[in-house]
Simulated assay, not measured.
Amino acid sequence: MKCTESIESQKFDLVLEHALAREAKVWKVPIFHNFTLKGTDISPRHYEKAVLWIEELNSLFQFCPETLALAISFLNRLLASVKAQLKYLRCIAIACLVLAAKINEEDEITHT
């Protein structure tokens, strides 16, 4: 029986390694060129303000630190993959926080 568990464990490790390698190829970090995010009008200062705003909202709603990290990860991934306009940055930032909260935060509504 232990032999089967070992094989299953090895298969899982291979699947996980493959998924991580695929993710590393697909998702890139945002790149700034000439003081703006490549292909957009978002400056590093605008990006920093968005991250600080997410942090402020995370604290206001008393979400866990993991939710903040996930929201910023979503923001980075999105900004690296699409050409977002500055006027939509706050909307994108709040959407990232909402998605992260949906994933990480427990549902506090109890049905009675």
Score class of each variant (00 low, 15 high):
residue 106 E to A: 07
residue 11 K to Q: 14
residue 59 S to G: 12
residue 27 W to L: 00
residue 22 R to A: 15
residue 38 K to N: 02
residue 92 I to L: 08
residue 3 C to K: 08
residue 9 S to C: 15
residue 110 T to C: 09
residue 83 K to Y: 07
residue 65 P to S: 05
residue 40 T to E: 00
residue 12 F to I: 10
residue 97 L to Q: 00
residue 6 S to C: 06
residue 46 H to D: 10
residue 83 K to R: 12
residue 105 E to H: 14
residue 97 L to F: 14
residue 96 C to N: 00
residue 68 L to V: 00
residue 4 T to K: 11
residue 44 P to E: 01
residue 74 F to Q: 01
residue 22 R to Y: 14
residue 104 N to F: 02
residue 13 D to E: 12
residue 104 N to W: 12
residue 25 K to E: 04
residue 41 D to C: 02
residue 50 A to I: 03
residue 88 Y to S: 06
residue 8 E to G: 01
residue 98 V to Q: 08
residue 103 I to M: 12
residue 93 A to E: 01
residue 36 T to Q: 09
residue 108 E to I: 11
residue 99 L to R: 02
residue 86 L to K: 05
residue 34 N to Q: 15
residue 84 A to K: 06
residue 112 T to L: 08
residue 89 L to T: 00
residue 89 L to F: 15
residue 61 F to V: 04
residue 50 A to D: 08
residue 4 T to P: 06
residue 77 R to F: 01
residue 9 S to E: 07
residue 57 L to N: 04
residue 4 T to Q: 12
residue 22 R to V: 11
residue 52 L to F: 15
residue 27 W to G: 03
residue 16 L to Q: 13
residue 12 F to D: 02
residue 87 K to Q: 13
residue 108 E to Q: 12
residue 75 L to D: 01
residue 43 S to E: 00
residue 44 P to M: 01
residue 44 P to K: 03
residue 44 P to Y: 01
residue 61 F to Y: 11
residue 70 L to E: 06
residue 16 L to K: 08
residue 11 K to F: 13
residue 72 I to T: 05
residue 80 A to N: 11
residue 93 A to F: 05
residue 18 H to R: 06
residue 16 L to F: 11
residue 2 K to Q: 15
residue 87 K to V: 14
residue 93 A to G: 02
residue 53 W to E: 00
residue 48 E to C: 15
residue 52 L to V: 06
residue 25 K to Y: 14
residue 6 S to N: 13
residue 4 T to E: 13
residue 52 L to W: 09
residue 6 S to W: 07
residue 58 N to D: 08
residue 14 L to I: 10
residue 101 A to Q: 06
residue 55 E to T: 10
residue 10 Q to I: 09
residue 40 T to W: 00
residue 11 K to L: 15
residue 43 S to C: 10
residue 24 A to N: 07
residue 36 T to V: 09
residue 38 K to W: 10
residue 4 T to C: 13
residue 99 L to Y: 09
residue 82 V to M: 15
residue 23 E to M: 05
residue 24 A to D: 04
residue 111 H to C: 10
residue 11 K to G: 07
residue 41 D to V: 03
residue 7 I to M: 08
residue 12 F to W: 14
residue 34 N to P: 03
residue 49 K to H: 07
residue 81 S to W: 12
residue 45 R to W: 15
residue 85 Q to I: 07
residue 30 P to N: 15
residue 7 I to N: 06
residue 91 C to Y: 08
residue 112 T to H: 12
residue 74 F to M: 05
residue 29 V to Y: 12
residue 105 E to S: 10
residue 68 L to T: 00
residue 109 I to E: 12
residue 86 L to P: 05
residue 83 K to I: 01
residue 35 F to C: 11
residue 106 E to H: 05
residue 46 H to I: 03
residue 21 A to K: 10
residue 3 C to P: 09
residue 94 I to Y: 01
residue 72 I to C: 03
residue 87 K to F: 14
residue 21 A to S: 14
residue 4 T to D: 11
residue 19 A to V: 05
residue 46 H to M: 02
residue 106 E to G: 02
residue 7 I to L: 03
residue 90 R to H: 06
residue 55 E to P: 01
residue 8 E to P: 07
residue 102 K to M: 14
residue 11 K to C: 12
residue 95 A to C: 03
residue 73 S to Q: 04
residue 50 A to E: 09
residue 65 P to W: 02
residue 19 A to N: 08
residue 28 K to T: 08
residue 32 F to Y: 12
residue 99 L to Q: 06
